[in-house]
């Protein structure tokens, strides 16, 4: 069995700071990490590999430094890692990204046919959740999004049964492999890499593909040119016109301050008071 897991290297959002006055992002010194949602996809892929054998190939599109993210995936137990990197990819939106990644997956498939493609639910820097469905569509794979559990995989019958998170419940879907799964978060827990894998990852040379190696001939479909969406402006949030009414906890007892606050809220919204009293 051959599984491809698509990952992205993202800035560790927990460490991004925004300047309060200029609203510029203080990116310097912010370490890059594997998109946390992708780790659920990788772990699920590794579990399938544990169960059925085969290979896990990790794929990433990004700058040369993204190699670190791929090496990290190797340490968790992936067999191979490919970084699709080319200046021509810069400025790609979700459509152009899914084009480049699907081309690379096709190329990977030429080496060994791919049975399942995994992606995370979404990235933490783009938050679109659109690249996974895009890849599936471009590759003509059955899309299983927001999968919370793989119920059954039968490689002989070539079918898979999964539970998919929907509004108000879980869909149980059965489909054929190959397929593309976007994995829901908190569905598994990433393993702690054994020492042997850590050393293997340190030694591992990530395969780097430029656009030609990834099988991309038409450069109008990648990067900025291949992106229908145009960012027209980037801006910080605007403060509300009327400033918040402030109480300082240090100038009165917590009790007085709390009572004061209640008074203020209920004067502004008398119906809230009725509702709260009614609730209880």
């Amino acid at each position: 069995m051959h599984i491809v897991v698509c990952i992205k290297q993202v800035p560790d959002s927990a460490q991004i700071r925004v300047h309060p006055v200029t609203n510029t992002i203080m990116r310097q010194g912010v370490p890059s990490v594997v998109n946390p949602y992708d780790l659920f996809a990788l772990e699920e892929a590794l579990r399938l590999k544990d169960q059925f054998g085969g290979r896990v190939t990790v794929l990433c599109m990004g700058p040369p430094q993204a190699e670190d993210a791929l090496k990290k995936c190797i340490s968790f137990g992936a067999d191979d890692a490919i970084l699709v990197t080319d200046r021509a990819f810069a400025g790609a939106d979700t459509l152009a990204t899914s084009y480049a990644l699907s081309a690379a997956i096709r190329k990977i498939g030429e080496e060994q046919a791919v049975d399942v493609v995994f992606t995370g639910k979404q990235t933490i820097d783009g938050d679109t959740a659109q690249v996974g469905p895009g890849i599936a569509k471009r590759l003509g794979l059955q899309l299983l999004s927001y999968v919370s559990r793989i119920v059954e995989l039968d490689l002989d019958a070539r079918h898979i049964i999964v539970e998919r998170r929907a509004e108000g419940g879980v869909q149980v879907l059965k489909t054929a492999v190959p397929c593309l799964i976007t994995m829901l978060e908190n569905t598994n827990e990433m393993r702690f890499a054994p020492m042997e894998n850590m050393i293997r990852a340190a030694r591992y040379e990530v395969r780097k593909w430029n656009k030609e190696a990834a099988g991309i001939a038409d450069i109008t479909k990648i990067g900025l040119k291949g992106s229908p969406t145009v960012v027209s402006k980037v801006f910080g949030p605007t403060p509300r016109e009327d400033k918040a009414e402030m109480l300082n906890a240090e100038t009165s007892t917590p009790r007085d301050m709390a009572l004061n606050m209640l008074q203020m809220i209920f004067t502004r919204k008398p119906e809230l008071e009725a509702q709260i009293v009614g609730n209880v």
């Binding site: 702690f192 054994p194 020492m195």
Partner: peptide, 9 residues
């Protein structure tokens, strides 16, 4: 000895 499985090097 490292804090990982098979951690002796």
């Amino acid at each position: 000895r490292c804090d990982r499985l098979g951690g002796d090097v």
